[in-house]
Simulated scan of single mutants.
Amino acid sequence: MIKDEYNVIGVMSGTSLDGIDLVYATFSYNDGWDFKILNAETVAYSSYWYTVLKDLISKSLDELKNIDLDYTAYLGVVIQNFITKHQISTIDAVCSHGHTALHQPEHKLTYQIGNLPVLADILKETVVCDFRVQDVELGGQGAPLVPIGDQLLFSQYDYCLNLGGFANISMELDGARIAYDVCPVNIVLNKYAKQLGFDYDDGGQIAASGSELLALGNLLNALEFYKAKPPKSLGLEWVNKNIFPLLDAAKLEEKDVLKTFSNHIAHQIAWVLKKDSKVLVTGGGAYNDYIISKIKLNKQVDIIIPEPELVEFKEALIFAFLGILKLRNEVNCLNSVTGAMKNHSSGKIFLP
């Protein structure tokens, strides 16, 4: 489907479990890509779905397949409600990431629920989804996938940094796009904020009030992942194995865990940035004033936090864009980023 303009819906559910992000956007091509977000919304998860999704990695494959059926149906309702609410009538495709249940690329395994063919039947629309599986089959990490969007939509910045469940970064290096996961962010911070009765650490205020345990910070910074060269990616399994045991063994108050880990995040991010570079920061962590200030303290950089719509919906926007590239049979997955054997056009197209 090659044309100059596309109207698409992008759908993203991330590891921080904030909810389902939906955008309706127009993309146009004229010697380069432009976009305009027309509608955007986050649908928070009910306590039921929050609990189910939080425990996915403990489920068997058969259990995941049953959850997948239910989640795909639920996702269909959420997307249909979005279409109805905003009176959207022109849709070239619904482009959905789904929700990651398993991500173990070293075992050639990645599984995102919510990507079943029935989604196209529920919506009566073309659906483009399941963007990670092919990359893993080709020897790649299956992540991150956003960098092709960074390259084609946000090339005016030296770095694109997303602070979501994990921090991931992309940049041009020696004529190729390079991107990787830097460290965990909200997937860790939100856990300890919730223990204090908050959904998240608003602005990093709790962290700011805590005390740092330098010995714990040193243990975190010494983890092998940080010494590995890209391509590399992180998942909840890695956090459960490497991060939570260290934090819990320290037996600190939550505010001190938040302070120590927030400083760790800032340290790891500043380490990969070059001095005086322009850094576009998006994702929920862009609102964490404490972490942003610590990054600036660690490295002299120009941090640009765009309008809230882009901060909160950039990933959903780019998954919409990945779907367009798939419809055009154009590269949407870069081997310089994921380590796959070749660049490729990833995703599955389901027709109603």
Score class of each variant (00 low, 15 high):
residue 17 L to Y: 12
residue 260 T to W: 04
residue 12 M to H: 08
residue 144 P to K: 05
residue 309 E to R: 05
residue 2 I to H: 00
residue 230 P to C: 00
residue 279 V to C: 00
residue 20 I to E: 07
residue 59 K to W: 12
residue 322 L to W: 03
residue 227 K to Y: 13
residue 63 E to R: 08
residue 147 P to I: 00
residue 195 Q to T: 11
residue 173 L to S: 09
residue 146 V to Y: 00
residue 93 A to L: 06
residue 307 E to T: 09
residue 93 A to T: 08
residue 82 F to N: 13
residue 344 H to E: 14
residue 164 G to F: 08
residue 241 K to D: 10
residue 330 E to L: 07
residue 162 N to K: 07
residue 318 I to F: 02
residue 262 S to I: 02
residue 103 H to R: 04
residue 200 Y to M: 12
residue 160 C to P: 13
residue 350 F to C: 05
residue 15 T to E: 11
residue 4 D to A: 02
residue 182 V to P: 06
residue 116 L to T: 12
residue 258 L to P: 08
residue 195 Q to L: 15
residue 1 M to K: 04
residue 36 K to V: 15
residue 312 E to H: 14
residue 171 M to C: 05
residue 157 Y to S: 10
residue 108 K to F: 02
residue 99 H to W: 09
residue 196 L to D: 11
residue 110 T to I: 06
residue 123 L to V: 10
residue 138 L to K: 15
residue 139 G to T: 07
residue 77 V to T: 11
residue 58 S to N: 15
residue 267 H to E: 15
residue 42 T to V: 09
residue 339 G to W: 11
residue 250 A to V: 05
residue 289 D to F: 03
residue 144 P to Y: 01
residue 246 L to S: 02
residue 294 K to E: 12
residue 246 L to A: 04
residue 271 W to G: 00
residue 198 F to N: 14
residue 327 L to Y: 02
residue 349 I to R: 04
residue 55 D to V: 01
residue 233 S to N: 13
residue 11 V to C: 01
residue 319 F to D: 09
residue 171 M to T: 15
residue 336 S to M: 10
residue 84 T to H: 13
residue 246 L to I: 06
residue 212 E to H: 06
residue 263 N to E: 15
residue 258 L to Y: 06
residue 121 D to F: 04
residue 86 H to V: 10
residue 309 E to H: 05
residue 234 L to G: 02
residue 29 Y to C: 03
residue 59 K to Y: 15
residue 201 D to N: 06
residue 180 Y to H: 11
residue 152 L to Y: 07
residue 157 Y to I: 14
